[in-house]
Amino acid sequence: MTGAKTGTKTGTKSGPAKWIAWVAMLVVIVVALFVGTVGQPSPTEAERAQNLAETIRCPSCKSQAVASSETPASKAVRELIWERIEAGDTDEEIRDYVASRFPGQDLLLDPEGSGFSGLVWALPVVFVIAAVAGLVMRFAGYRAQPLTASQEDKSLVDAALRASENGEKP
């Protein structure tokens, strides 16, 4: 998909006929992605429990999720998740409930997007934007001064050409 875009963007000076293969490819890709993504069943309760368990840290371990540890604490959290799902709580309510037992967001493996911990999500985005902006500015700066041969360059080239015509080494 992305590849085709690069192709079409960069110009069509040779006429649209040359792009037929790319257009065909784009069509195939879009159809395949459509077939591959549409009509996904919504997650079952077991899947919800598993997904939640993957975002909650095992209280007695170091950085493992409760989904992947066998400690009693993890088992207790997994049971709790099940109870709450059956009681009809939303994922967010369950996460908040479990987290409230421990100081701060100690038990959440993905920090919340708001407040101070939101920085961990925002800073990388700022980083990328700044880097790309910096690069774009550099390119723009280069464009503003088009590469032209100076008089000095031209005389050098002329001299070299003359020399090679005369059969000498430049």
Partner: peptide, 13 residues
């Protein structure tokens, strides 16, 4: 079954 520890918020013994 770990429930007590969870209720008390025990991280590690």
């Amino acid at each position: 079954r770990g429930r007590t520890a969870l209720d008390w918020g025990v991280a590690k013994v």
